[in-house]
């Protein structure tokens, strides 16, 4: 996307330079040509010129509409991640960036991604509003508490690229910086294979799911006091008020921290809130676990269907 943004940017630079020079040129020319030559001289009274005024209204109007169309089209593409992205989860907090890869790799202030792959970030904040900004990729998005926002990019050249927090967030705002490390694919595989953590995000989520006793109500079949979560992600859910909502990340998060906001039809409002009991990372792990619960029920970790490379890395460090 960066070259396309730059093309528009430099078009605007040229436009700015052109009009600044054109109008300044006229002003200087008039100022010299019509300089006052006698103390009691006055200007020629000209009231206006309708044709001229319509011209200099319509031409800028056409120009700005053209720029609007160009920029809006590009923005639309930038706002929609393509299918089949590599997903990374981001939690911003005063004053660091935490990245979680679905395979369980966790990083702070550094994000490793493979070159030539579309990467989608799902981001939230643990405290105030932050903003993840990678100038070289021309991407930026606010990271909000209580909400998931998305950002995607496709790095075209391996290297280290600066990453900034662009929304003022308090004392150490200018220290909330890091790097996006873009690796060749082979290098990336090597990085994935090395020194991983405690299992995939879904596995950690599953453990959390048991530790928090979610499993006592949300069973694999329909016998639980809460609705089953198997195959839930991405499906439409009918609420007790008759409305339907899509079970996306935002819905799942809300249902954990504020269960009574949207009650599923046919169930009692008995679930307590988990706000404050689960960290933002934990919420993302739970969501990743729920996402992994595909329609074929399974009670093993195999349900998570982790990326091949991660499965190997996951075993040694498992608590």
């Amino acid at each position: 996307m960066a070259p396309q943004v730059d093309a528009l940017y430099f078009f605007l630079v040229a436009l700015t330079a052109f009009f600044t020079l054109l109008i300044s040129g006229f002003v200087v020319y008039f100022a010299i040509k019509y300089r006052r030559r006698a103390a009691d001289e006055t200007g020629v009274p000209i009231h206006g010129n309708l044709k001229l005024e319509i011209t200099w209204t319509v031409i800028p109007l056409i120009i700005v509409l053209f720029i609007f169309g160009w920029s809006a089209r590009l923005f639309y593409t930038m706002a929609r991640p393509p299918a089949g992205t590599l997903d990374v989860y981001v939690v911003g907090k005063q004053w660091m960036w935490k990245f979680q890869h679905p395979d369980g790799h966790a990083e702070v202030n550094e994000l490793h991604v493979p070159v030539g792959t579309s990467v989608k970030l799902t981001m939230t904040s643990q405290d105030v509003i932050h903003d993840l900004y990678v100038p070289d990729f021309r991407v930026k998005a606010d990271v909000l508490p209580g909400r998931y926002t998305h950002l995607w990019f496709k790095a075209t050249k391996p290297g280290r690229y600066r990453l900034f927090c662009a929304e003022y967030c308090g004392t150490n705002h200018s220290g909330m910086v890091g790097w996006v490390v873009v690796l060749e694919r082979a290098e990336y595989q090597k990085w994935l294979a090395g020194g991983a953590g405690t299992g995939t995000m879904a596995q950690t989520g599953e453990k959390l799911f048991k530790d928090l006793s979610c499993v006592t109500c949300h069973k694999e079949d329909t016998t639980g006091r809460g609705p089953t979560l198997i195959g839930l992600y991405g499906k439409a859910v009918t609420l007790d008020n008759g409305n339907a909502v899509e079970a996306d990340e935002a819905y799942l998060r809300e249902s954990i921290v504020n269960p009574r906001a949207k009650m599923v039809s046919g169930f009692q409002p008995i679930m307590p809130t988990f706000q404050g009991l689960v960290s933002e990372e934990g919420l993302l792990q739970l969501i990743e676990y729920i996402k992994s619960l595909k329609a074929v029920p399974s009670n093993a970790t195999g349900a998570a269907a982790p990326p091949a490379a991660a499965a190997a890395a996951a075993t040694p460090g498992k608590k």
Binding site: Q4, V5, L8, Y9, L12, L15, T16, F19, T20, I23, S24, V27, V64, I67, F68, W70, S71, A72, L74, F75, M78, D131, Y133, P135, R138, V139, K140, A166, E167
Partner: peptide, 26 residues
């Protein structure tokens, strides 16, 4: 006139969505 021309025209950069994403908060 000189400063307002530059100030006004650079406003177009910020109204242009795709460019604003990059230069916003910079």
């Amino acid at each position: 006139i000189g400063l307002f021309l530059i100030g006004g025209l650079t406003g177009l950069f910020l109204a242009a969505l795709a460019v604003d994403v990059h230069v916003h908060d910079t």
